[in-house]
Design a binder for these strands. Sequence first.
RNA 1: GGGCCUGUAGCUCAGGUGGUUAGAGCGCACGCCUGAUAAGCGUGAGGUCAGUAGUUCGACUCUACUCAGGCCCA
Length: 1053
Amino acid sequence: MFKQLTDKISYPAVEKEVLKFWKDREIFDKSISTRVGKPGFIFYEGPPTANGRPGIHHVMSRTLKDIICRYKTMCGFQVHRKAGWDTHGLPVEIEVEKELGFKHKEEIVKYGVAEFNKKCRESVWKYKTDWEEMTEQMGYWVDMTKPYITFENNYIESVWWALKRFFDEGMIYKGYKIQPYCPRCETPLSSHEVSLGYDDVKDPSVYVMMKLKGKPDTSFLVWTTTPWTLISNVALAVHPDVNYARVEHNGEQFILAEARLSVLDGDYKVLDRVKGKTLAGTEYEPLFSYLSLDKKAHYVVEAEFVTTDDGTGIVHMAPAYGEDDYQTAKKYNLPTLHPVNKSGEFGPEVIDFAGKFVKDADPLIIDNLKARSLLYKKETITHSYPHCWRCMTPLLYYARNSWYIRTTKYAAKMVDLNKQINWVPPEIGEGRFGNWLKENKDWALSRDRFWGTPLPIWVCDSCSTQTCVGSISELRQGQNVPEPLDLHKPFVDLVTFQCSCGGVMKRTPELIDAWFDSGAMPFAQWHYPFENKELVDSGEQYPADFICEGIDQTRGWFYSLHAIGTFLFGKPAYKSLLVNDLVLDKVGQKMSKSKGNTVNPFDTLGKYGADTTRWYLVTSSPPWRPTMFDEDGLIEVQRKFFGTLLNTYAFFALYANIDKFTFSEPSIPLAERLEIDRWIISELNSLIKRYVESMEAYDVTKAARGVSDFTINQLSNWYVRRNRRRFWSTTRLVEKSEMGKDKTAVYQTLYECLTTVAKLMAPFAPFLADEIFRNLNSVTKRDGYESVHLAVIPGVEEVAIDSALESKMERAEKIVMLVRSMRVKANLKVRQPLRRIILPIANEEDRQAVKYMEDVILDEINVKAIEYVTDESGMVSKKGRANFKSIGPRFGKSVPLLANRIKELSVAEIEELERVGTLNLPLDGKTCTINREDVEIVREDLPGWLVESDSGLTVALDTELNEELIAEGSAREFVNRVQNMRKDAGFGVTDRIHIYYKASTKLQEILNSMATYIKNETLAVELSDSFQKGEYDVKLDINGEEVKVGIERRKAV
RNA sequence: GGGCCUGUAGCUCAGGUGGUUAGAGCGCACGCCUGAUAAGCGUGAGGUCAGUAGUUCGACUCUACUCAGGCCCA
């Protein structure tokens, strides 16, 4: 028996059962172990941080990963999926700081680094359970029993190995550079971290006056959005080739770029113009003099980066706080003034603002300038500004010492190798990632924090020699190695080495960027090269065939994998990359806790089930476009696709059980099945073909939409509906007969469609797919797999694809549609049979194509016959329509004229064209010859008939009724009512009945004449024209006549 | 300011290589069906394909610019 399933099932409940089945039978393990020896498909799991709650966007990317991995498994690949956890870095530290109520970094030192890190190590797992539950519940198959964990000694050791490779080749250096810096966390950030925290802020936009030395009535007009940097100003930069104007304005003189004169408020008079280069060297009076200078400063320098897009074309230089400034200062040997401490506060030497956080000092500085009449004007601008991605403090750009990886040295290779990567979609790889690689900057590697992979570099305190430790065994050669070994701070810091110079080597205190940790996972997850060396070296686990994460990882994980992989292995770390964009709320707004529009994945999974959620996320828009998350969409998915599929399955199961169909007989050859069977099998194979194409291109959306379309439209709405009768027929007419061949064929056909759909949907909706597959397969045992996830995606049977048949069916459906449209207009319901439709089809081939589908058409629209009229009948009026594709290239500019002429062709002219094949038309003084293919001949008028046409197809409907047709209509009406009664009375579908009725003489005559038909349709053993109440009775209205009907069950004969 | 993406019916989305009647689902209106049924189906009304200019015989499709939105970066 096939298990009955309907769309009234609770999806989450079914999923729970399936989950239990997977667990009990270890299906996930088997999906890997049954592929031993098969080619591998390498997948890398990007490690999430378990100290944040999982959100709906995680369901999104995990769904995509799962879809591809399951799909590849079902293509026969062995797909290992090792889970991972990203456990280091600021997110963890901040969480612990919050817990401990710390505001400053010193508090951590006071508290004790060992104790702090211990807390970090625990805090890492704060939401581990949530993650595991979410992962399991959503059906994401990933091996969480043996995950890689970035804080484990083995993992760190592999990272150290990698760092040493960089170090040994001179790729790691300590430099003094401008870096984005978080004054709260007191640590520099890498550029990819900076990219995570852009936010719109209001900043002052001030124009200040810098008076020329010795000319107090003349000022350079300078613009800045960071007044606090003015304290450290040492120079002004102008573009050498830009024109600068000296103007008279408000009784004073100003110098600024000519192109920026619009910033002046009110009238001004240009006194003269000079090129920027002639201004170079001009000295000016500093705005502030808190800081002492060790080099010459406060004069105009030339710089190419100056633009006249905004500001005044004169840029103020504070070398400690900007990359351009810093480079310029180097070139001109300018002093660097850096009076700001680690917390972003001014030092005591800046007397008036000492102890102030620089951003808070901005208004005070502005007031100060204003009081001294050095402020020209002050505005406020809104612009996006980087913030610390974890604590949201605005970042400052600081000059400071830190460690770098010299990625610029092999950036060209990264750009090159990037071209080998299949980015989905490609534009992110070329544009966003490609452009970023081209402008690659050295990777700011070090962090001045506590919880992370320590930078394994030891420096001699007397001769400054550096050495890099690349393994635990190397570390053990040092002194004071702590036991048990913990490679974290503060323990590693105790280890020292003897320098050859006799000095003591101590570890440099910094940690490394946690992105390096995750970027090292391709090999660190295997503790390479200390273990599993061959796994990576042989290519068995490197590079990845596929990775998939959110677009925010472009400069995060995607980059760190690529940068590390390119250097260490000279190959890209991944071959294909599927990017997913954000999940927004239903009105398209970004989800955020503050807006309260976040979606809790557990709510969604619990309410609608994982399959619905997954299917919805994947089909509503392509992953690489933002997805608007709307609950209504989930309901629709459930109702439309899953509901229809389950109904189709339920329909199959109901009748298959009645008929004891178990697919035990041999499969009937396609050639021996009806054309409608061949048609659906053809469509099915076309579906598989498109599906595989889409999946191979990682276009999961197209693949899933295709499965849904097929199921709803082709399979349920057409094939099942058109063939329902074949499922009932023998059941009711031939009691104990064997199933006829035709009936077997229809079961087999539907069965094939259902199992195939189950397989195709399995990667997307793994629960329901398995439920349906196993329900089907447990009876038939046709597939030797205990779960759909161990099965294989069926290959395309090219021979089964008959595109001519597909288009014939399409045409038939179109004709049906036209007739339905006319029936509505003429107010003739489908139950009323009609005599005929008329098709004006001149072409014999086209006519044959329709004839082939005649049965389907006639039955569907309840019409007795199709008549074909030819042109000779005189009923058809023909018109010409230009075929632009054909006349376009040949007639060029004359096309519109010619097209008009073709529209006006007379019937005689068209017939000549058809007969001769060409036609000469005088046009614009010349004669042009047109061919048969230049004109599309349409027959869309049948004068005197009810006609409807669409895309060249025309149908006329004969709406005239006669006695016979009316009688049949009434009989059908009667049957319909009796069927309703059976249902209302609660009779079973196979119960035999006795019908008693009382009607007018006229209707009685009709019913008598149609008795056989009525009895067949209603499973009536008898039809008596004398009324009895029976088990159930009712008064009916049949086409305006009153009838009393009673029905009663009879034992089956 | 730069890069990339998006703009098609009230809403969500489809629309190889340019060809003249731009599609679907939802919603809406009307109707049908009732042996898949607290389901299902049909018909219909909705679009100057963001705007402007250009290339072309012909542009939703190509080019440029503008506007709006998103993401990323300065």
